[in-house]
Computed example of a mutant assay.
Amino acid sequence: MADISIPKTPVIEKKPVNFSNILLGAALNMAEVSTLGQPLEVVKTTMAANRKFSIFQATKHIWARGGVLGFYQGLIPWAWIEASTKGAVLLFVSAEAEYQFKVLGANNFLAGMGGGVSGGLAQAYLTMGFTTCLKTVEITRTKQATVGVAQQTSLQVFREIFRKEGIRGINRGVNAVAIRQMTNWGSRFGFSRLAEEMIRNVTGKGDSQPLSAYEKILGSVIGGGLSAWNQPIEVIRVEMQSKTNDPNRPKNLGVLGAAKYIYGQSGVMGLYRGVVPRIGLSVWQTVFMVAFGDIVKNLLNVQAAGH
């Protein structure tokens, strides 16, 4: 009698959620923003807020504001607060969501995209509303140039916005931030997983064989670069939160109102201002949070299994 064997359904392994993994997300994001992350963010935001600037003009403008330190405007405290919280939220939520999507039968691309969308949504509403707003205010506000007039500190700016506009003012643009983060990390995780699949096909590696660190980084570079397709959402977010002086700009812009205003002022190309530094920033962030995140999480889990 012929032996009829039933193919086994592949077991989807759920990696343990360790406190060290949550700390890892915060540490990776802090390292990312404190190196090239914030300078690229400042250039990108400056170009999005001043849509006539080229990269050279934006760089010259930032240098005139504060030299090297001008490229780290808004790093302390807002970018550090944002990085230390959103990184932990992203790695925790995205890993859990990606596992659940795989359980439901999604392939690596769809599971990665679903995990990234979930992580980005949680980032926006749990940790990023006020920090992103205040970081953009710091980058775009006009500095007082009069001799003898004291500069407003970051906390003074925060208090002034809160006094005038309350919680709504502090969280201005949070819906645009949510759309940005969902599309950001959905694209970054999804395209990175798709790139990893392509690398596996080229190298002949099976699903059970781990990719090398270089292959992981290459996948993240591809995924990060492709994720910059949503630059119009970023330009809209910057416009909603910007303190750049423009008497023609309507007050209290929403997402659609900001899109119409930008299109009316600068056309379609205005919605893509700052896309070049944005590609660099997306690649840098994705390498840290996807490639390095996977590499270090695997090391931590292997060590934990060995004890």
Rank of each mutant, 00 (worst) to 15 (best):
residue 178 A to T: 06
residue 178 A to E: 05
residue 179 I to T: 07
residue 182 M to K: 07
residue 184 N to G: 08
residue 185 W to S: 05
residue 185 W to N: 07
residue 186 G to C: 10
residue 187 S to H: 05
residue 187 S to F: 08
residue 188 R to W: 02
residue 189 F to K: 09
residue 189 F to C: 14
residue 191 F to V: 04
residue 191 F to T: 05
residue 191 F to N: 06
residue 193 R to I: 00
residue 195 A to I: 00
residue 195 A to V: 02
residue 195 A to S: 05
residue 196 E to V: 03
residue 200 R to P: 01
residue 200 R to Q: 00
residue 200 R to I: 01
residue 200 R to T: 01
residue 202 V to T: 03
residue 203 T to W: 01
residue 203 T to I: 00
residue 207 D to V: 05
residue 207 D to N: 07
residue 208 S to L: 08
residue 209 Q to S: 04
residue 210 P to M: 01
residue 210 P to F: 02
residue 212 S to C: 02
residue 213 A to C: 03
residue 213 A to I: 04
residue 214 Y to H: 03
residue 214 Y to F: 07
residue 215 E to Y: 00
residue 216 K to P: 00
residue 216 K to M: 01
residue 217 I to N: 00
residue 217 I to D: 00
residue 218 L to F: 01
residue 220 S to A: 15
residue 220 S to D: 05
residue 220 S to H: 04
residue 222 I to R: 00
residue 222 I to P: 02
residue 223 G to I: 00
residue 224 G to Q: 03
residue 224 G to W: 03
residue 225 G to S: 10
residue 227 S to C: 12
residue 227 S to W: 05
residue 228 A to G: 05
residue 229 W to H: 06
residue 229 W to C: 04
residue 231 Q to R: 06
residue 232 P to A: 08
residue 234 E to N: 10
residue 235 V to W: 04
residue 236 I to V: 15
residue 238 V to P: 04
residue 240 M to P: 02
residue 241 Q to P: 09
residue 242 S to F: 05
residue 242 S to E: 03
residue 243 K to H: 09
residue 243 K to R: 15
residue 244 T to H: 11
residue 244 T to V: 15
residue 245 N to A: 14
residue 246 D to L: 06
residue 250 P to V: 14
residue 251 K to E: 15
residue 255 V to P: 07
residue 256 L to K: 15
residue 257 G to N: 13
residue 258 A to N: 11
residue 258 A to P: 13
residue 262 I to T: 11
residue 262 I to W: 08
residue 264 G to N: 13
residue 265 Q to S: 10
residue 266 S to P: 04
residue 266 S to L: 05
residue 268 V to T: 13
residue 268 V to C: 09
residue 268 V to M: 13
residue 269 M to N: 13
residue 269 M to Q: 12
residue 270 G to S: 09
residue 271 L to M: 15
residue 272 Y to V: 13
residue 273 R to D: 08
residue 273 R to C: 11
residue 274 G to Y: 09
residue 277 P to K: 10
residue 277 P to H: 11
residue 279 I to L: 12
residue 279 I to M: 12
residue 279 I to Q: 12
residue 280 G to D: 12
residue 280 G to E: 12
